[in-house]
Design a protein around this nucleic acid. Sequence first.
DNA 1: GCAAAAGTGTTCGTCTTACACCCATGC
DNA 2: GCATGGGTGTAAGACGAACACTTTTGC
Lengths: 230, 230
Amino acid sequence: MIADNKEQYFNVALATGIVLFAFDLEHLHILLTRKKEEPFKGAWVIPSRYVKADESLEENVKVLLKNTIGHEDVYLEQLNAFAKVYRNPIGRVVNIPFYGLMQLTEKEFKNAEKNNCKWIKYHDVPDMAFDHNEIIDYAKERLKRRVKRRPVGFNSLPKEFTLNQLQTLYEQALNKTFDKRNFRKKIFNSQLLVDTGKTIITSQGKESKLYKFDMERYEKMSLKGYDFLF
Amino acid sequence: MIADNKEQYFNVALATGIVLFAFDLEHLHILLTRKKEEPFKGAWVIPSRYVKADESLEENVKVLLKNTIGHEDVYLEQLNAFAKVYRNPIGRVVNIPFYGLMQLTEKEFKNAEKNNCKWIKYHDVPDMAFDHNEIIDYAKERLKRRVKRRPVGFNSLPKEFTLNQLQTLYEQALNKTFDKRNFRKKIFNSQLLVDTGKTIITSQGKESKLYKFDMERYEKMSLKGYDFLF
DNA sequence: GCAAAAGTGTTCGTCTTACACCCATGC
DNA sequence: GCATGGGTGTAAGACGAACACTTTTGC
């Protein structure tokens, strides 16, 4: 079947997109940009890029990251392909988006501005071009599930963080609030946090204990069938 | 960027594949077929099909189902795209596989044979062409997670089924055994099963109660934030 | 009569949830 | 001095895990 008319099938273009979530210790953000060319010139989109013939999806996404935030040090996960026939007016473009999770610091904030991108608050996503709102909604759902079921949240915190920062992150991602005492109990019970013995002075001038995530321990526990659950 | 040399990007082919899981009330099976053409003529593959220019992925998968088991009454879910540059020697073919879950009866068994397909036991998957083993492993992982966290298993049972059949399904999919009393307690606690009042004579000649899944109730509970968990 | 399958309760420990106050700091 | 945020304990209920026997049937 394919041998007869190979050409008829090789007429699809591939792109990746990145729904980049970043936490600045207070709010979750998503990185958006505006389209520089037709179609939908000027409209909000997630950073996207056509995949070259000999380029893997991951390589492509990493170029996207370099071009927007200036580095590629981000937790990444592939999402479902968006492949509707008429999603792009110039032809059949299949977008295989990823979601990323990272810490938002001054550096990424400035780099984004420089590269014509903007960090939008998680709950304030505007109307976007193509099916990009759908992609973001899907990525948010995925993030929620992951935060609930795997300790991915730590990818958006500094190596050492306070429990209040961790709780804020969970509350933002899951869009609900937790009782402070119960939150701490649950996290400590999981035995995935290590007390660094250090403290930090938070923005309110209070002293607060610093913890770090014990990745090694998590991996060992995972192998034995442990399931992180929040 | 794209306007200048549009052609250079529109040279990818799209295919879907289906990892079809089916339960005959005793064992889980996966549907495989053998390649009829080069490359890898004669090798085991999952049923796959090129996507036509104006065809959605879902339409394409449904044709696949029609061509193999003779109908399209299957629970479907899209998996991650498999897009490695050199996964197919004839060009860059991106496979966007789905997994499906259904009940295996005589009908599907015969239709598969007629269509050059074979139902292989879940734990006996042979070496396959392309990256199809990888796809199956990925689909199995997804199935495990789904069975644990959503009541998808009911898609592979008849409308009315016994608790032992349900338990067997869970044991096969998750590759472990459960205590019968605890299993029943857990399932009844979830309040998702309705006693039909009927019984059936099983293959061992014993009478066994029939239950059905209360989809409406599940949907209501889901909306209120209920999470099925096994 | 014995092998195989359907069905059934209790106990113990752990986890979840609800709930309130003290202390230090910045202003 | 007061508003803000960091930090802490207890009690009640729900849930999970471990565990054994009775009954019926086919052979």
